[in-house]
Design a protein around this nucleic acid. Structure first.
Lengths: 360, 360
DNA sequence: TGATGCATTTGAATCGTTTCATGCCACGAT
DNA sequence: ATCGTGGCATGAAACGATTCAAATGCATCA
């Protein structure tokens, strides 16, 4: 045994430290042998250098370098009972909003020496649970999840199974689930108030299916703001999804209308809709933005600022959402007492699409 | 020992299968005890059900369900010596192109029951190697990497360390590295040829630093196409980065020019630049797209189709890039002989921004 | 009846790291 | 000289799934 080890180390040395191929894994035992200490000491150097004398630390670290030792995380986490990864399940990483969430999450995780496992659910419950199961096998430390379904019960059960879950962009009334979200009611209020303050009175809300939590909340906020101004009205233009195409269709319908039946301001439930509306309004439609119709979108995606008529939008801190989600998870893991639900306030970014009428 | 195990199982049963809390992990031993078989059999049920009698399989699976057993992947991979994850390191997941790459990679990985570890390098070599090291500790099966630096030597050394590496959107002349990429020279040629065929002769290329491999190639392709048409010219407008802002600045500079010194077509090195140019051209600039200046971008990001003047663009199959990258990795792992470098052909998507002059 | 072959099951050994009770040593106080 | 004390180092045990040589049961055939 001893001898075998030694031979192995010698072979490694002979090869000059930079091993080609990959047939042989260097373990703590090899390092220990090379440094002339015990495995326990090597482990201490790795994890609690302060408990080891300076001289020994150096010797061990030299050996680590010389042998090109890389910790085997599987063994480490087998012993520890937990891994150093967290799972992130979003509907679609291709959606810029979630890409930003992922970015924030990964940043925070990397700070903590943790790693992010990515899963796309496509809003499909089966894909979602497939990911959750796989992640669970990896003994992830926790999950950031934007749930695909309204069936939070299943997720609740999952959370009770011992894996901390943080809901992203979705709150749950009660129970053990943590969440990071943005106050969508306030966002809707902000948008509508801004339009009202700019002197608009005939507002319209263009939004996706009301079954989507976020859409309903944004509408609610807008309604509240409108209700506070006596002569103001809010028309609801419902759309089946939140895409550019739907926005364009909605816009074209408005263009068709008689001029005095058009709203003088539109609040779109997200920026994609808003972009579609903008497109419809610019095809020689006779509608000028913001002169005839002022526009406010939601999400403040990168393109909002880059649109031809730069789009006012309610900013959601997507990156912070991800960052904070992981932060919550980490605190939960450390057993630190903390808020289980963080709610951000949205911010209105005013751009050209809702500036005062040029002819006011 | 026996007794202790049995007590544990009984306790689990008493709690009704759905364990609250998380103080106790269910292992193969528990399952084995509950099913009245040995651990080896449980393992066989899990991994080679065909070697176990039907009756036993059922009994074991019942026990698994009853106890809520979840395989501990750490132990599994410790024994196996390798994990079931692959690493993905991109400059920024917030960039729609890389988000799509990630999407494709994750799809393919999920098909194979594998999991994707995500890392953002921010084009920073240190961040990049931090990720690589972390991933290496996790004994990932391979890495998909869009390298931050030109220092492929370091990455080559890494690859020789035994971890299969697939470069994404970047090729390497020789050596052991696999890659998936798109033929950028051809993409440049396509764009320029298209503009030439539409009758344009005074072309301009707007592009980021030439040190970026992709930029240089796209330019090279465009130059080749232009050289083939005697009276055609190609002006190069160099820009320090590939952003909307830089595009707008370049556009404004063109607007300033005397009319007869302007190009009649612009090929932008990516869509963000193109969007910026479009913006500059539409501010009552007197430049109409495509009548005065035709435009072609690169990447075909989602917004290209949604722009006010819908943008012609050279499509890169981002999702396939990711998908194929993982596929290459998997083949490499299975020892299947296969191409180590896959190169996609780009595709030109023609939209309004480069249609024939309305007054032709 | 015993031998033979096949299908199934067994359980100890293994992977590489961390933990922790234990041992060793040197130095200062008594 | 003896006892404590504190600083370091040690190495066996443990984590949980997988593997594989060996054992077992069972049916078939000579």
């Amino acid at each position: 045994m001893r001898t075998a080890r030694n031979e192995k180390v010698e072979r490694l040395h002979r090869e000059g430290g930079a091993r080609k191929g990959s047939d042989m894994a260097v373990g703590v035992k090899d390092v220990a042998a090379a440094a002339g200490v015990s495995v326990g000491t090597v482990s201490n150097v790795l994890n609690r250098p302060d408990r080891v004398s300076v001289k020994t630390v150096e010797r061990v670290q030299d050996a680590i370098r010389a042998l090109g030792f890389v910790r085997n995380d599987a063994a480490r986490q087998l012993r520890a009972g937990r891994s150093r990864s967290i799972g992130l399940v979003v509907p679609d990483i291709g959606n810029p909003f979630f890409a930003d969430v992922a970015r924030g999450a990964e940043d925070r995780a990397a700070d903590a020496g943790m790693t992010v496992l990515l899963g796309n659910s496509d809003d499909d419950v089966d894909r979602q649970s497939a990911h959750l199961e796989l992640f669970q096998e990896q003994r992830i430390n926790g999950i950031l999840l934007t749930p695909a379904s309204d069936d939070l019960a299943a997720i609740g059960r999952f959370a009770e199974g011992g894996v901390p879950v943080v809901l992203v962009d979705r709150e749950v009334e009660e129970g053990a689930l943590s969440s990071v979200s943005v106050d969508d009611v306030e966002g809707g209020r902000l948008a509508a108030s801004h339009l009202l303050e700019a002197g608009r009175r005939r507002l319209a809300f263009v939004g996706g299916p009301r079954s989507i939590h976020q859409v309903a909340d944004r509408l609610r906020g807008a309604q509240a703001a409108v209700a506070a101004v006596p002569e103001a009205t809010l028309e609801i233009i419902e759309r089946p999804s939140l895409t550019v195409l739907q926005g364009r269709a909605a816009g074209e319908a408005l263009v068709e209308r008689e001029v005095d039946r058009r709203p003088d301001a539109v609040f779109a439930a997200n920026d994609l809709l808003a972009v579609g509306l903008l497109q419809a309004f610019s095809f020689g439609s006779g509608i000028r933005v913001p002169d005839d119709i002022a526009m406010v979108g939601y999400d403040d995606i990168d393109f909002a600022a880059a649109a031809v008529v730069s789009l006012s939008s309610v900013r959601q801190p997507a990156r912070e959402l991800g960052w904070t989600g992981v932060d919550l998870l980490l605190k939960q893991l450390d057993g630190v007492d903390h808020d289980r639900r963080v709610r951000f306030q949205p911010e209105l970014i005013v751009r050209d699409s809702s500036r005062a009428r040029s002819d006011s």
